[in-house]
Nucleic acid binder design. Structure first.
Lengths: 254, 254
DNA sequence: GCACAATCTCGTACGGTGTAAAGAGTTATT
DNA sequence: AATAACTCTTTACACCGTACGAGATTGTGC
């Protein structure tokens, strides 16, 4: 049940697989399945049943080979995770053309697209990439993010750090959004039911050590009900855009 | 190797354990170990060897009981994870008293404290809490965050959403900071060595689909070397503070 | 055609995991 | 003394990732 760690396998081999740079062998029998079959089967399992359900045996079975034949195609499971991450990275949409004059709308669009992507593949939020996954789709995501901030007078480092900041925020916020959906599916207990179940206990607690929280909590439903993650996402994004605007306007603007 | 999921066990039982609300049984032999012994042993293992090393058997062995005796004290592993999370939540520092006039410094302090906390216990970043961990320490963290934003003219919902935004950003940014440290410890390969190993391959790629990235990447070392996560953290935090300032000043300020 | 090397596939096996089930021992109540 | 409540333990099961080695299949060089 530990965290899946991507980027642990042989880096070069992983990159070769990710970019399709493996020259098909001359001799020996033809492979019965392709690499993408395995990766897509794994993604399907993860989408449907969560990342816990993805085992080398399950994936092998899904494509119709024996458990150990998995290792003919993929060195080990951590490489599979890298491949899965790049396979779905950033979702599937055409490369947009951005007008710098409307950079707020552009960033909002990219951030929302990423939030959608995380919600479509919530297991991505659970796989901790300990190295950057330098695959084609991941690079495309970086490119899209950067493009939304291009032409605003920022230097290279400011652009990169801004992308990092936005991406980090979206990642964190998407966790909140995906959380309630995943738990409901896996436990059959909705957020409301959960809060209702624990409410009697919460009423017995002494909140005097938390004066501010006990003033704020009940209002927003953080203590007696979940807040609205969609609204919180938009709110945080607006603050971040305001912060970027201060910097961009300080540089002369778009 | 899947993600650890906290908050799956019986909610009430988890809360009772977390708040020490289990009335000591009248009959039967005295327990040889206390709940906190188990939790602290688990935290020690996770701090030293990562969350993967935390198994019910390991924890039981660490406190000197047999594997299955673990379940006498804790219903299942997911509850242990909840208890671990609250045990370390937010780090260990006295409750500060904030001057609203210096709210930027206050928020910076809290954010930095949380970053330190994540780096001290990087496994926290890997455990996905599917429900809020409503323990005393987690509540204290929420209280501290809220206090740093108190007295600025924000309403309850704005305060809560601001805390959520900052916390989400810190969480995401701390992942970047903790990443290189963890990988170096676990693989013995530093970031530089890793980039050096894959550089020959990266040079064979066609970057024409990524015009902006290939302009930015080499400068910031995102494509040919890792950026500086500490600097990126400070940069992002400044932007977020700027964004909050816009809202706070729009309300009349502190 | 034939030997050989390369390659895919597979069966077996090992040490690990979480935890269900059932029993043995200990303590306080009746 | 009997019993209920409780802790601790042993055994067992199904799963996991994957090391190892044995066929089976294909192309190459003679």
């Amino acid at each position: 049940m530990a965290e899946d760690i991507a980027g642990r396998g042989d880096p070069i081999k992983t990159l070769q697989l990710m970019w399709g740079r493996v020259d098909t062998p001359k001799r020996g029998p033809k492979a019965r399945v392709a690499l993408t079959d395995l990766v897509q089967a794994a993604v399907r399992i993860a989408d449907a049943e969560g990342i816990d359900a993805v085992s080398t045996r399950r994936v092998a079975e899904a494509v119709g080979i024996s458990p150990m034949s998995f290792y003919t195609h993929i060195p080990d499971k951590s490489v599979l995770l890298d491949l899965m991450l790049d396979a779905v990275s950033g979702g599937d949409y055409p490369m947009p053309v951005f007008d710098p004059a409307q950079w707020r709308a552009n960033v909002t669009m990219v951030a929302s697209e990423f939030r959608k992507y995380y919600i479509a593949h919530p297991w991505v939020l659970q796989v901790s990439t300990h190295r950057p996954v330098l695959g084609p789709n991941t690079m495309k995501s970086y490119e899209v993010f950067l493009s939304a901030l291009d032409g605003l007078g920022l230097d290279e480092i400011e652009m990169d750090m801004s992308v990092t900041m936005i991406a980090n925020y979206v990642f964190g916020a998407a966790r909140d959004v995906a959380r309630s959906r995943m738990v409901k599916e896996q436990t059959g207990m909705s957020d409301d039911e959960w809060w209702y179940a624990i409410a009697p206990f919460l009423e017995t607690l002494d909140y005097s050590p938390y004066p501010v929280a006990s003033r704020i909590g009940p209002v927003v439903g953080e203590l007696y009900g979940l807040g609205d993650p969609d609204r919180a996402f938009d709110f945080g994004l607006e603050r971040i855009l305001d912060g970027l605007a201060v910097m961009i306007e300080g540089k002369g603007g778009p």
